[in-house]
Amino acid sequence: MSDYIWFEGIPFPAIGYEKKIIEESRDKFVIRDEDTVILTYPKSGTNWLIEIVCLIQTKGNPKWIQSVPVWERSPWIETQNGYAMLINKEGPCLMSSHLPIHLFPKSFFRSKAKVIYVFRNPRDVLVSGYFFWDKSNLIKMPESLETYFEWFLKGNVPYGSWFEHTCAWLSMRERDNFLVLSYEDMKKSTRGTIEKICDFLGKKLEPDELDMVLKYSSFQAMKEKNVSNFSLIIKDVIINGLALMRKGVAGDWKNHFTVAQAETFDKVFQEKMAGFPPGLFPWK
């Protein structure tokens, strides 16, 4: 299995990434006022949100999402392939990123581009990440969930510390061009979330168009579609059947954490996220 590429203290998967691209995307890539960015920490509902935004753009027509892979509809700023696609694109672009705030393109902070940031219960992020990376050849995997648990709390996982990533990006939440969503609220009220995204993007959809967005962005619809579930990804990245979409539920961590792990995580969470209002985190 591959080890990491480290850039300014952040570990990235060794396949599909280059230090030069990450640096260029931060210092030279231009995010324009008319662009939209899907921003998350890994395993937080990224591809689900991309699907929703793409369907909003087509007023619920599924033709685009059924024919073009998700990584081409919303290329990743920091990856080799995604960066190459984006620097050649014209007009309003939809793009994705897991980058922490200090490595994100500097041009964004001078723009009116819209960012949608989704965060998820980090306990579920940890479990989902463990089972995802275990099926890939992208990183060096630990021997057990117990070891990965320790790595996660230390930030020695792809894209670094969840706590640092989330704290930094949530500091942007009062900006007009920055929409914050939680995965748990998306699950609880998907239609309401879609309407909120429409308002943020300035898109007006009719009730039947909203129904179509809801239908074609469902977990089952995405899981069955190879342009959304990453089953088209190159074979040397996959071992043991990569599953981008495993369960799509909230609270699965309870099936995997020991009592001691749950207590340890709670303590770390309280320490790291102490500055935020309690109601910000819907899983509490």
Results as ranks from 00 to 15, higher is better:
residue 49 L to A: 07
residue 211 D to T: 11
residue 103 L to C: 04
residue 195 E to L: 12
residue 32 R to H: 09
residue 252 D to Q: 12
residue 282 P to T: 05
residue 281 F to T: 02
residue 157 V to I: 14
residue 282 P to G: 03
residue 261 Q to L: 06
residue 239 I to T: 11
residue 86 L to C: 14
residue 160 G to F: 06
residue 36 T to R: 12
residue 122 P to Q: 05
residue 86 L to F: 12
residue 151 W to E: 06
residue 218 S to C: 03
residue 119 F to S: 04
residue 246 R to T: 04
residue 133 W to N: 12
residue 10 I to D: 02
residue 77 I to S: 06
residue 212 M to Q: 15
residue 162 W to A: 03
residue 25 S to E: 13
residue 243 A to N: 06
residue 248 G to S: 05
residue 114 K to I: 03
residue 154 K to S: 15
residue 9 G to R: 09
residue 90 E to C: 00
residue 95 M to P: 03
residue 249 V to A: 15
residue 125 V to R: 06
residue 13 P to V: 01
residue 104 F to Q: 09
residue 93 C to D: 00
residue 198 C to L: 12
residue 184 E to A: 13
residue 231 S to K: 14
residue 30 V to T: 11
residue 190 T to H: 11
residue 132 F to K: 03
residue 168 A to K: 14
residue 12 F to L: 01
residue 188 K to D: 10
residue 68 V to C: 10
residue 26 R to L: 07
residue 211 D to W: 02
residue 128 S to C: 10
residue 247 K to Q: 15
residue 83 Y to D: 06
residue 143 E to S: 14
residue 85 M to C: 00
residue 113 A to W: 11
residue 72 E to K: 12
residue 189 S to K: 14
residue 72 E to H: 11
residue 52 I to Q: 08
residue 237 V to Y: 15
residue 218 S to G: 10
residue 236 D to P: 10
residue 236 D to W: 11
residue 128 S to I: 08
residue 196 K to I: 07
residue 78 E to Q: 05
residue 8 E to W: 05
residue 260 A to H: 04
residue 99 L to K: 12
residue 68 V to E: 06
residue 217 S to M: 10
residue 99 L to H: 09
residue 151 W to H: 13
residue 41 Y to E: 02
residue 160 G to C: 01
residue 72 E to S: 01
residue 167 C to S: 15
residue 176 D to K: 15
residue 81 N to V: 14
residue 45 G to M: 05
residue 54 C to F: 00
residue 189 S to Q: 13
residue 106 K to A: 10
residue 246 R to C: 02
residue 172 M to E: 15
residue 159 Y to S: 06
residue 244 L to K: 06
residue 236 D to A: 05
residue 158 P to M: 08
residue 183 Y to H: 09
residue 16 G to M: 12
residue 246 R to M: 09
residue 201 L to G: 00
residue 28 K to W: 08
residue 223 K to W: 06
residue 165 H to P: 01
residue 39 L to F: 01
residue 15 I to V: 15
residue 110 R to L: 13
residue 44 S to Q: 03
residue 66 Q to E: 10
residue 262 A to D: 15
residue 144 S to P: 00
residue 187 K to Y: 04
residue 282 P to M: 01
residue 172 M to L: 12
residue 53 V to H: 11
residue 75 P to Y: 02
residue 243 A to T: 02
residue 263 E to C: 08
residue 250 A to I: 05
residue 254 K to W: 00
residue 104 F to V: 08
residue 111 S to F: 07
residue 26 R to G: 03
residue 4 Y to K: 04
residue 108 F to D: 05
residue 64 W to N: 09
residue 269 F to S: 05
residue 7 F to Y: 15
residue 93 C to F: 03
